[in-house]
């Protein structure tokens, strides 16, 4: 399989008068998991939107295999590059199977027939996300974690080699967050899907990323292996937060422990009696 290379060069973008991305250069590692982190409003979602052509760059460009994505026909691009937005909308009453089959859109012409290949792609996507048992259930009856798996199945049915996800774990409780991130790692390892996602949780980002990208002020601040990027110095600069980094004994990846103004072991104030924390 040839792996597609997604890069940005000197990418600037924004909404109205606001410039949100300011000359950003990023080369996504093909076949790996890249996680983008940064403070609120640092431009992470905008970067993802620009990389998937939802917004046009002001300057610079987004390149797929060296070709500007704005010069690739939209259906063709949609067969290579998939995106799961932060809050996709499920039409009222739609079943999981129906939703997932919509991922076949770029593979079909305006009046083309549904083929066995389409059925197989949908079934494979349902199997990979363990949503086969849910196939005939309406989306509105599912739990948050199940619903997110169904959306990922839709993106899988699109059969793209590159998959971008904007905060795929928001609104999920911790066990479902892990479930979704494990699922994406499975896809990356078994299908070789290149994954680029924005995550809020730094520790989950460090655990699941092959490549961690930290953004600040619309620019790339640091980029590399998680242990290179998740450092006390970088956290201070990117988030304005004091922290301590330790190593997770299970994954061997760095964990960031924030340091606030209170609740320190060396805190001179006496602990409140009768209230063990």
């Amino acid at each position: 399989m040839t792996l597609h290379a997604l890069t940005t060069s000197g990418l600037s973008a924004g909404y109205g008068d606001a410039v949100i991305l300011d000359g950003l250069d990023l080369a996504v590692l093909p076949g790996r998991i890249t996680v983008i982190v940064g403070a609120n409003a640092c431009g992470k979602s905008t970067l993802l939107r620009a990389m998937s052509r939802l917004i046009a760059p002001r300057r610079g460009q987004v390149l797929l295999d060296g070709k500007s994505i704005h010069h690739i026909p939209s259906r063709e691009l949609a067969r290579t590059l998939g995106l799961l937005p932060q809050s996709p909308i499920a039409p009222e009453g739609i079943t999981v199977a129906d939703l997932v089959s919509r991922g076949r859109h770029p593979h079909q012409g305006a009046f083309a027939r549904w083929t066995r290949g389409d059925d197989e792609a949908v079934a494979a996507a349902l199997a990979a996300t363990r949503t086969i048992e849910l196939a005939e259930r309406p989306m509105d009856e599912l739990s948050g974690g199940q619903r997110q798996r169904a959306w990922i199945a839709m993106a899988l049915a699109q059969q793209t080699e590159v998959l971008l996800l904007d905060e795929p774990t928001t609104f999920l409780d911790i066990s479902h967050q892990i479930e979704v991130l494990d699922l994406l790692t499975d896809l990356n390892q078994t299908r070789g899907t290149t994954i680029v996602m924005v995550l809020h949780d730094l520790n989950l980002a460090a655990r699941y990323a092959d490549e961690l990208v930290a953004m600040a002020g619309g620019r790339l601040y640091a980029c590399g292996r998680p242990e290179e990027v998740l450092t006390e110095h970088n956290v201070r600069h990117v988030f304005g937060l004091e922290s301590r980094i330790i190593i997770d004994p299970t994954s061997g990846r760095p964990i960031m422990l924030p340091i606030g103004r209170h609740r320190m072991a060396t805190d001179s104030r006496p602990a409140r009696s009768g209230h063990p924390d």
């Binding site: 909308i89 039409p91 859109h105 770029p106």
Partner: peptide, 14 residues
């Protein structure tokens, strides 16, 4: 496809 929201539709090639 537009019923899934504009972002999703665009990502599907609409």
């Amino acid at each position: 496809a537009l019923r899934l929201g504009e972002d999703t539709a665009a990502a599907l090639g609409v």
